[in-house]
Amino acid sequence: MFKATINAKDFKKIIDATSNLVDEICFEVDENGIKANAMDPSHVALVSVNIPKDTFEEYISDVHDIGVDLEALKKIMGRAKSNEKLTLELDEEKNKLNLILKNDAVRKFSVSLYDVSSTNLKVPDIEYPNEVMIKAGAFVEALKDAELVNDHVSLKISEDGKFIIFSKGDINQSETIYDNNSESILDLKITESSKSTFNLAYLKDITKATSSDDILHIYLGSDMPVKIEYNIGNAKILFLLAPRIE
């Protein structure tokens, strides 16, 4: 048994954020809520979603692995209206996931389940020296600046505690500098200077579904994966992206 009702807008955002990196996902559902971890095909990035039970208006579930094609889910959620309620319902007999959208009309979709067995993929527990809390819009703007000069970007914490988004091409260079006085910065928890370099296309995918006022928690170290977390309603989404190393 699995039946869960949530506002369509939040679930759409969760699917949009996930489907930028992976094609299929296995939702591990149980009485506490929905969890899913997946790596992109090249194993450079990982996405982890946690939608606790209290996010839902109604939630009843036993333990199931529900493997779905994210592209199909993304298309259906693309048709959802923000004032609609979405009910997810597992049809074990037909091996389908039903998506029922309700407001003025009742619209029913049903998608085939994939045999994506749970990968038991765990998010590695990495300790980070630095954490930046920044508005998503500001970070996305800095990435756009960096993109003008190269396909990769360095996320740096300077000796004097500034957060720097730096990119260097053959001839050109771009740099966005934030400090504790910047309005877009909610907090800088810094213990040491650090620098890691990342592929820009991945960072853009990771931040694509964000709204400009979303608060990103960016965890940084030197030549370490970047961890980026934000909330979608009560749900939490986490990305890990491996660095590029000189």
């Binding site: 194993h43 450079v44 590695p124 890990l240 491996a242 660095p243 590029r244 000189e246």
Partner: peptide
């Protein structure tokens, strides 16, 4: 040029 590594190195 920096080289992309995979996440496996951190598991």
């Amino acid at each position: 040029k920096p080289k992309q590594i995979t996440l496996e190195a951190f598991f």
